[in-house]
Design a protein around this nucleic acid. Structure first.
Lengths: 213, 213
DNA sequence: ATTTTGCATTTTGAATTCAAAATACAAAAT
DNA sequence: ATTTTGTATTTTGAATTCAAAATGCAAAAT
């Protein structure tokens, strides 16, 4: 029997609220008020926040309150770097685990975008996330998958829109899939790391511009 | 002003208790009883457990209770793999950040063991942990450092004694330090990954023996 | 003898309560 | 006018309480 606890349902709600800016970075999370709004008492609410704290989405300043984390430029960079090596690991592992059905699945995520002259960016971004998630699943390292931090930063990055144009990443995704097909783990890892690190480079220059604005 | 909250002090206590087997893997953590033993109520106690859950040291089965996590062989392997790439990343980053003072620091951790015919394993293990921690600090990626999971598995691994004999790892440590001296990030990363992955290999064969016993 | 059922006890989940700390604000002093 | 001080209010930290669920056990039924 699956228990979906009160805590987890609130946890998800708050997480969503953070991602769609209903709760803005730096905003203080008033326990009394917010928990009331969600229709629960402070106990389960606090437990949910505790969980989010572990994912670096919320920050707890003792005796001063809980705040939506303001991700600094450096922290985003740091997290991207972690993502790069962890997803690289997943790609390497996936190369030895993957079967032809799963390869087809990954390909199908992107085939419709090939030769399309106007790509729906929203839909493409969704497929992109699926691709990365799916690959981590196939890699089979459960700990990587549980490091929610990886998904969080991925989401965070896509809030501001895609970092790189689909035409560019599409090629990269297929290159990774080909390495998996060839069961070349080394290559898959290398390509995945480059794929993510090149996004990071885009982020770096973008954020520099913003900073100096 | 630094606030050391009740929660964190309990958190550390429980963590210790887990590491020195006062609380054994699989053991149920009775909230009423244990919190009473620690002299606090269930609220801060539960908060501490929540934190430990995020670090994969405690498991929460809803409506059935909190348990000290039984790390499966596969989970330990998975965690080792994460450690390998994350510390590899740290080593690469450290290569560009490190200064001569820090290099000397790292060397000093191990110099006394060179040419020693009888190495104090307990002391060596401590230095080993310092080495890895210090390197992550120098690498400067704050997120890696916050992934407590890394330290946890390191500790876990050393509970059963050193996986590899000091004579072997001593060489590896110095090789890494030399790569850092040469500011060769690629090499430092490669060596660190090999260093950790070879420990993993030892663990794998050891744990196989135990399993078939 | 083994399994099933029902009751008592234990234990968790969640709300509430109480105290301590932080914040906001107004009044007084310089 | 600005700063300081004291007080009221808010908000968090932690304990307690209460209800719901799970567990253990004994008695009854097969």
């Amino acid at each position: 029997m699956e228990h979906i606890g009160l805590v987890d349902s609130i946890y998800l709600k708050i997480k969503q609220m953070i991602f769609n800016q209903e709760l803005k970075p730096g905003q203080k999370l008033l326990q009394e008020k917010l928990s009331a709004e969600l229709g629960v008492s402070r106990s389960p609410f606090l437990k949910a926040l505790q969980k989010l704290e572990g994912e670096f989405l919320v920050e707890n300043l003792p005796r001063r309150g809980m705040y939506v984390k303001v991700m600094s430029r450096q922290e985003i960079i740091d997290t991207f770097q972690c993502r790069s090596v962890l997803e690289g690991l997943s790609a390497r592992l996936a190369a030895s685990n993957i079967d032809s059905k799963e390869i087809a699945e990954l390909e199908n995520l992107f085939t419709e975008f090939v030769d399309q002259n106007k790509i729906d960016e929203k839909e493409y971004a969704k497929r992109d996330r699926s691709f990365h998630k799916r690959l981590m699943d196939i890699g089979g390292n459960k700990i990587v998958r549980k490091l929610e931090l990886i998904n969080n930063i991925h989401l965070q990055a896509f809030q501001v829109g895609l970092l790189k144009p689909p035409t560019e990443t599409l090629t990269e995704h297929f290159a990774i899939i080909n390495a998996l097909k060839a069961k070349d783990g080394q290559q898959a890892e290398r390509l995945m790391r480059e794929h993510i690190e090149s996004s990071l480079e885009v982020y770096k220059s973008q954020s520099l511009l913003i900073e100096s604005a």
